[in-house]
Write a protein that binds this DNA or RNA. Structure first.
Length: 486
RNA sequence: GGCCCCAUGGUCAAGCGGUCUAAGACACCGCCCUUUCACGGCGGUAACCCGGGUUCGAAUCCCGGUGGGGUCACCA
């Protein structure tokens, strides 16, 4: 069996989409699992919509996800160039070859003629397709079209009466009737190949053994197989993975919220969480575990465990997974990742000294349990940076009305004034002793302190809050709260 | 509309003819832990689209229906 070689071939017309990322991931996993290689090329034959910016974007997203490739754009290799617009001569050569061999022909039909034909077929309830009007144009007719300045496209002669069977690795045998296909365009009038043609030429020349892509490409596959046969090339294996759907069960698109990898990155999702989540959309290892590192996924991934039915993108589950990774990953790393979010919110300005970094680590440690993404961190740390922390709601206000409250606040304040520094250990001790010293139940002590210090009835452990604020700020907030309840 | 794909709880899914009175995860609900919330632990509610076959036996195989989706470009 030849060494596996797969590819991801996006068109650079926008950022990397969730669905595209999943296709890339499956290809990558398959290559890594089998010890094969992974190639990335750009299908940029749509010159209107393609851009270098999108290309850079897509590649950056792939790198961010940790999907490294062995050959292609940025990695080089013996089969380049890896951008289709830089391979035009190659396609033209094969197009000429097909024309000479009588496998393809020029077509001069205008857009109006084609639209009319399509609509007529649609009206009759038939599969809309090109009926082959230009197949046997006489030299005179050709000359007349040329004289009229019409630029022809090149169409492939689809053999009549055949059935093409796609042997799909995930779907089994799928057959298509050639008579429903119609001669399709392989070269546009501007000399640029169409997708169906370029993809076949490239996959063959680049030695691709397995084409793993989204199910939306399945209807195109018989056309491509016909091209392989016409050119006398062996077909690769095909594997069509089902689509990722939005909550409304239609193909994911912009109106379904965040759909690009970039957006999730900006919201503070971790690449390993996204990879883990995406791997589980349409694939399952079969066991009872749900959390897998990229290494484990590489180990476990096989095509026979890819599901056939489409999968709805469930943000709740992504959130859970991402929160899980945020909680279990090393504190330093999550701190490093959180810093940009804190800077953007204006909570950190200036240089991050070792002392400040240590404090940031405590800060992150105090709130990481609450997060399902890093962007959410800002709404949990405001209590540490605010100037004033008045009670935020009636429940909080009520806590401060207790008659024991002034004494509680005063007691802790007294201890704070005596201190220059405050670490977690000390805070724990002071807090632990407080109820007994005051002769009060814990709740009557801790709740007022919590509200006085944060303005809220919920939040991180008090022994974490105290050191983060420092004795001075704690004392200040206690004083202000005391002022408010008098 | 033609062609094609798909069909297990709200969602992701295991199941590949008997061990299914159907696993696991997310979400939801309850309890515990925590003198807060969250995290964590334990437990619970909740599913084989319908109808015919095949078979001793069908969530699993076949056919039909229904439903959902994809695709029908000089886009990929």
């Amino acid at each position: 069996m030849p060494r596996v070689k797969v590819r991801f071939a996006p068109s650079p017309t926008g950022p990397l989409h969730i669905g595209g990322a999943r296709s890339a991931l499956f290809n990558w996993l398959y290559a890594r699992h089998t010890g094969g290689s992974f190639l990335v090329r750009m299908e940029d034959t749509d010159r209107e919509r393609s851009s270098r910016e999108s290309e850079e974007n897509i590649l950056a997203a792939l790198r961010w996800l940790g999907l490294d490739w062995d050959e292609g754009i940025g990695a080089g290799g013996p089969n380049g160039p890896y951008r289709q617009t830089e391979r035009l001569d190659i396609y033209r050569g094969y197009a000429q070859q097909m024309l000479d061999a009588g496998l393809a022909y020029h077509c001069y039909c205008t857009e109006e003629e084609l639209t009319a034909e399509r609509e007529a077929l649609l009206a009759k309830g038939e599969m809309p397709r090109y009926l082959g009007r230009c197949r046997n144009l006489s030299p005179q007719e050709r000359a007349r079209c040329e004289a009229a300045g019409r630029r022809p496209v090149l169409r492939f002669k689809v053999p009549a009466g055949q059935t093409v069977v796609v042997h799909d690795q995930v779907r089994g045998a799928v057959s298509f009737d050639c008579d429903g296909i119609g001669d399709f365009i392989i070269m546009k009038s501007d000399g640029i190949p169409t997708y169906n043609f370029a993809v076949v030429v490239d996959d063959h020349l680049m030695g691709i053994t397995h084409v793993i892509r989204a199910e939306e490409h399945l209807p195109n596959t018989p056309r491509q197989i016909l091209l392989y046969r016409a050119l006398g090339w062996p077909e690769p294996e095909f594997a069509h993975v089902s689509l990722i759907l939005g909550a409304d069960r239609t193909k994911m698109s912009k109106r379904h919220g965040a759909t690009s990898i970039e957006q999730y990155q900006e919201l503070g999702y971790l690449p390993e969480a996204l990879v883990n989540f995406l791997a589980l959309l349409g694939w399952s290892p079969g066991g009872e575990d749900e959390v897998f590192s990229p290494e484990q996924l590489k180990e476990l991934f096989t095509l026979d465990r890819v599901a056939k039915s489409p999968a709805v993108f469930d943000l709740e589950k992504l959130n859970w997974l991402n929160g899980h990774y945020i909680r279990q990953c090393p504190l330093e790393r999550i701190t490093d990742l959180a810093i940009p979010f804190l800077q953007k919110a204006g909570y950190i300005t200036g240089e991050i000294t070792p002392e400040r970094y240590a404090r940031l680590k405590s800060l992150v440690a105090a709130v990481r349990d609450y997060l399902s993404n890093l962007a959410e961190i800002t709404q949990h740390v405001d209590i540490f940076f605010a100037q004033e922390t008045p009670p935020v709601d009636d429940e909080a206000r009520a806590v401060l009305t207790g008659e024991q409250v002034p004494a509680v606040l005063a007691a802790l304040r007294e201890k704070m004034v005596a201190l220059n520094e405050l670490d977690e250990e000390t805070a724990r001790m002071i807090l632990k002793k407080l109820p007994r010293e005051l002769g009060l139940g814990g709740k009557k002590v801790y709740m007022p302190l919590r509200v006085a210090l944060t303005g809220r009835t919920h939040g991180p452990e008090l022994y974490q809050v105290l050191p983060l604020l420092g004795p001075e700020k704690v004392a200040g907030r206690l004083a202000r709260a005391a002022g408010r309840c008098s």
